[in-house]
Design a protein around this nucleic acid. Structure first.
Lengths: 323, 323
DNA sequence: TTGAAAGCGCTAACAA
DNA sequence: TTGTTAGCGCTTTCAA
């Protein structure tokens, strides 16, 4: 930068102003400086800039895993929004492991990242609280952890669940089974509630033995569905709250020779391409992952830019496809 | 840091040495400093450290897309290796778009990232060349772009293709069709070569009309396979060089009522969960994505740490499962 | 519209 | 084993 200034016959600060557009610079001066920058192949040092300005131009996005297309679609939305506003993103895999998450958050504070968008685990509160003490901007995505005040961006799980269940009911099903994730989790609770509301609203009983929950993942979906198929009479339909559970459930149904939708209707959240081969035979709801990521970052950057007001919960409607 | 030093009754540099283990510090002093750090909740500023030390502790990983599990599995390997060695990773989506890649590389230079691991596009040479002028360490992954001298880490595409084709031949197939990506690309060339070698090695002719190539993606796989099915006699088997092509090909076969493997054997690269439902009926080869990512970063960090020697091409064998 | 001086928080180089 | 000094490359503050 010193070289650029010297060669252009201006002061350091003028070069800085040309680069950052931080103040008016005479057009001629500006052109001259830009020419020298080009000539010398000068690239500004963001570290030095950050040190003085206290803005790093970086964000962090913490996701449960990046090998699942649902989360990476969120990442794409987040990244596109960040890039369009001149920010770079550190993408971090937490594996839903609070310890790993805490380690990342420490690194994040060290790097003086301007803001964090996080899909929290159920035990994230202490680490996120610490983050906020360091005055790092924060937005929660998809889940909400008790005790943390921040903007939250998520899809309307409960509404989606009501829509799925209502569709099955409208198709004439009554004995509807539920295959879900851990009920203790925020979204799990939300989805189970939606299911129950839709059922009771239609005057249908929710049989406790048809409500199956377990950890996320195909194995769990497989096992829970096997249990359901062992009952007699079998349920007439199944609603599933998560794509990976659905993958296991569908395998169990295939193995048992159950035809979909002739023998049994299946309605499920549908967020990963692995379900594509089955899609035409399912009733599905897809969460607007890209938009969730995008809005999460937008809100974060607005806060960083000084947007005032109390924390908000921004809820997206989901997209339903009935078959 | 000044506060920590004052309160612990030592100089700034002693605090620095405790944090970085950069020199011997008396155990008592060290303990005292650590206690104060804890008490004051001090977190070092990486920006300031980087400015002086000229090491940012950051890497960048440029991938074609993060919504495809093959690439994100590479990212996981890269990230795990980086984290274990105290580095943070900027993950960047290039969409195989040289312009987007170039924009990222500019940001990367600004941030004075210590090194870059990239899956290049076919037109990446100028941007990567520029990167090297700024003395940023570089490793290429999975593909290799002409004119750039760097370490390369990739799977053995040619060997994998030979193995797949050989398996089909051993099963008695002779009229084997080939469905592949753009032949101009490095890996495309490699795979086609492997196919041809295996065929001619077994004394089988390669029918030109059974060699189909097109862009990546399910649509392309679908169209190419439809073409093949329109021929008579139909091929007895198909080898497919890419998971997403396979997805489209399998849909075309399903629609045509072709049973696998009874009516037609299918051998394919298999790197994404979307193929799981078909896996049992296919002969597959899986590339060690996690290890490729891991070794890529390991090699990069070794270079950054000063490892000498000429650039190398590190080739992983792939994992074959025959059905 | 431009500049001079000070300093962001840390570490390299040298010294004791 | 510990400390002093200088300075990394930039932006803030104040001044012209």
């Amino acid at each position: 930068m010193k070289d650029v200034a010297k060669r252009a016959g201006v002061s350091l600060i003028t070069v800085s102003r040309v680069i950052n557009r931080s103040s008016y610079v005479h057009a001629d001066t500006r052109a001259r400086v830009l020419a020298v920058i080009e000539e010398l192949q000068y690239v500004p040092n963001r570290m030095a800039s950050s040190l003085r300005s206290r803005q790093t131009g970086t964000l962090a996005l913490l996701l449960p895993t990046i090998t699942n297309a649902f989360w990476t679609t969120i990442a794409r939305g987040a990244e596109d929004e960040a890039e369009s506003r001149g920010y770079s993103v550190f993408l971090c895999n937490t594996d839903d492991d609070p310890a790993k998450e805490a380690r990342y958050l420490d690194v994040i504070v060290r790097h003086r990242v301007d803001g964090v968008v996080v899909v929290p685990t159920s035990e994230s509160a202490p680490a996120l609280c610490r983050l906020q003490r360091y005055e790092v901007a924060l937005v929660q995505l998809h889940r909400k952890v008790a005790g943390i005040e921040s903007d939250i961006v998520r899809g309307d799980s409960r509404g989606a669940m009501i829509a799925l269940t209502t569709h099955l009911l409208a198709a004439g099903c009554q004995r509807i089974a539920y295959v879900g994730g851990p009920p203790a989790m925020f979204m799990g609770h939300d989805r189970l509630t939606g299911f129950q509301e839709a059922m009771t609203g239609a005057g249908c009983a929710v049989c406790p033995e048809l409500v199956k929950t377990g950890p996320f993942g195909p194995e769990s979906g497989y096992a829970l569905t096997k249990d359901l198929l062992a009952r007699s009479p079998r349920p007439e339909a199944i609603v599933i709250t998560n794509s990976r559970l659905a993958l296991g459930a569908l395998r169990a149904l295939d193995e048992a020779g159950v035809r979909i939708p002739d023998d049994m209707a299946v309605a499920t959240f549908y967020d990963i391409p692995a379900l594509d081969p089955y899609a035409a035979r399912l009733t599905t709801v897809t969460q607007p992952a890209y938009e969730i990521g995008r809005l999460g970052v937008r809100r974060l950057l607005d806060r960083i830019a000084g947007a005032a007001g109390p924390p908000e919960e921004l809820i997206f409607p989901n997209h339903i496809v009935a078959h």
